[in-house]
Amino acid sequence: MTDKLVQPFSQKRTAELAENLSAGGEVKGRSLWADARRRFVANRAAMASVVVLVLIFAFSLFGDHVTQFDNETIDWDVMGSVKELGAPSLTNGHWFGFDESGRDLYARVVQGSRISLSVGLVGAFIAVMVGTLYGSVAGFVGGRVDGVMMRLVDIFMSIPYMFVLILLLVVFGRSISMLFVGIGLTAWLDMSRIVRGQTLSLKNREFVEAAVAIGVPTHRIILRHIVPNLLGVVVVYATLLVPQMILTESFISFLGLGVQEPDTSWGALISEGVKSMNYGTLWQLAFPLCFFVITIFCFFFIGDGLRDALDPKDR
């Protein structure tokens, strides 16, 4: 940290202005990203997380090819005495043991990972895209537009999002796409407020004022000058968002409004596991929770790594 602080002041200032004001920014843009990649690769924790996360994705996509069991077939001999016979075992091929109904937990975790990761990524993607654009437009344009846009957000936010989600799932029936959209659309509100707040303070910075002064069109200023400068906050928030989406899904599963049997998700597996955690079948909680925790750790480390790498002020 200290060595970053002693970088020459004027050089950075100039570089930043040049970057921001440059009309042929694409060439410079590429160098910005190349630069970021170089620094990201140097971050060991982040790189390790990427590796682990890739492994988890691979597990969720291909994990079912290495087991002879599927996620729905019940072993009638084990059912009913899962506590005694259903523990994880390397010898019988049930590496993660059995779930409460006598089904192979490994196959269920694989399939649950698939659902949870997609809900997390798709939900966060929707939220980030909508929230960033909405928030930066509102913050930058300001005035009446900002007022209307933010009152709209207030209206949306005044309905607790969990409640909206429950109502949506109740009214429009239950489907995985409804989950994606519902979870994503209820989470962009926070994002938009944060982005707006940042935009408001960015707006008065010299480089934006300079851009306005030389007549760069508004949409261009937002996309080229505001949004890239928001990246740090957006990335940090997005990394909080993916696990939050996964958590939201688990809450919905806890209410019984999640994916339908025999499909499952981490949330559903964890909430089943927690119900029986005191009855001697702790592995039913441990395995899904493990994947859940590791994934979130990875997202957090990657988020931090990205922030450090992308932060234009750090060059």
Binding site: I74, S101, E261, E272, K275
Partner: peptide, 13 residues
């Protein structure tokens, strides 16, 4: 929605 109904349904299915 109920844990017990779910278990019965899974088994019967």
């Amino acid at each position: 929605t109920s844990e017990a109904h779910k278990k019965v349904a899974i088994a019967i299915a």
